[in-house]
């Protein structure tokens, strides 16, 4: 017998003659205390993100490229990791062209192994979309894709995320159910609730531990 069979054998023997406990899941307990009037959802999400040093910008589907450009300019950043394969990537490129701006756009178009050094040390900012937001905890739902891989939201010191106000839901349970996560989880699914942080030295909060030092959430109020 191998370790697997021995472990399972012991566990089964310990449960012999017993009945499994029924699943009496109490969804009300996970939704009722975490429900908000529609007009308060974005406010709550923003205030929770701000409480953990996240920056939130209320903007529109048309205006956000200008806000992103301003955010980059104010930080002296002249390049952005953004996917040309996404609608928002194309919109931002179009905005730059139209306004004659020189921000260099970089695509995550090769396996990470081929440009690790550049990604880690010469990529100051990235922009990704989100699958929604969670008002209860101030969280973004991010499912990395081939166009926007896992490290896009982790390695660059500044991460800018686009969030449609209409996709901000009350709580995790709700979005998990309505988006049917259990049936279709990707290889990596993320909840992101602020920039990277740690309190490992004398309980003193410090931001920018290993992930982004800054997170800016562009909330598209009309989208």
């Amino acid at each position: 017998m191998n370790a697997r069979d021995r472990i399972l054998g012991k566990l089964k023997q310990s449960l012999a003659g017993t009945t499994p406990i029924a699943d009496d899941y109490d969804d009300a307990l996970l939704t009722a205390p975490w429900s908000y009037p529609a007009e308060h959802r974005v406010t709550r999400l923003c205030s929770l993100l701000q409480a953990v040093h996240g920056e939130t910008v209320l903007t529109t589907a048309a205006e956000w490229p200008a806000r992103v450009s301003e955010a980059l300019a104010s930080r002296g950043i002249d390049e952005l990791l953004i996917s040309p394969a996404t609608a928002h990537g194309q919109q931002f490129a179009g905005y730059l062209a139209l306004n004659g701006l020189v921000t260099r756009l970089k695509a995550y178009d090769r396996p990470v192994e081929q440009w690790k050094d550049e990604l880690f040390f010469s990529t100051p900012a990235s922009l990704t979309g989100t699958l929604g937001g969670i008002a209860a905890t101030g969280s973004l739902v991010v499912w990395p894709t081939p166009a926007e891989p896992r490290l896009m939201s982790l390695v660059p010191p500044l991460h800018i995320a686009l969030l449609k106000a209409s996709e901000v839901v009350d709580n995790l349970y709700q979005i998990m159910q309505t988006q049917r996560w259990a049936e279709r989880l990707p290889t990596n699914a993320l909840l992101i609730s602020g920039p990277s942080k740690t309190a490992d030295i004398q309980q003193t909060l410090a931001y920018g531990a290993h992930g982004p030092k800054e997170l800016i959430v562009m909330v598209l109020q009309d989208a």
């Binding site: 905890t137 896992r150 609730s193």
Partner: peptide
């Protein structure tokens, strides 16, 4: 209320993906 990251891993990098590990192992310890 929640940690900065909740990271749900359901497999290694797929053929069309550009990052993530090529291999994922889970060791279950008694």
């Amino acid at each position: 209320p929640i940690t900065t990251y909740v990271n749900v891993i359901s497999g290694p990098r797929k053929a069309d993906e550009l990052d993530g590990p090529q291999e994922v192992h889970l060791v279950l310890l008694d």
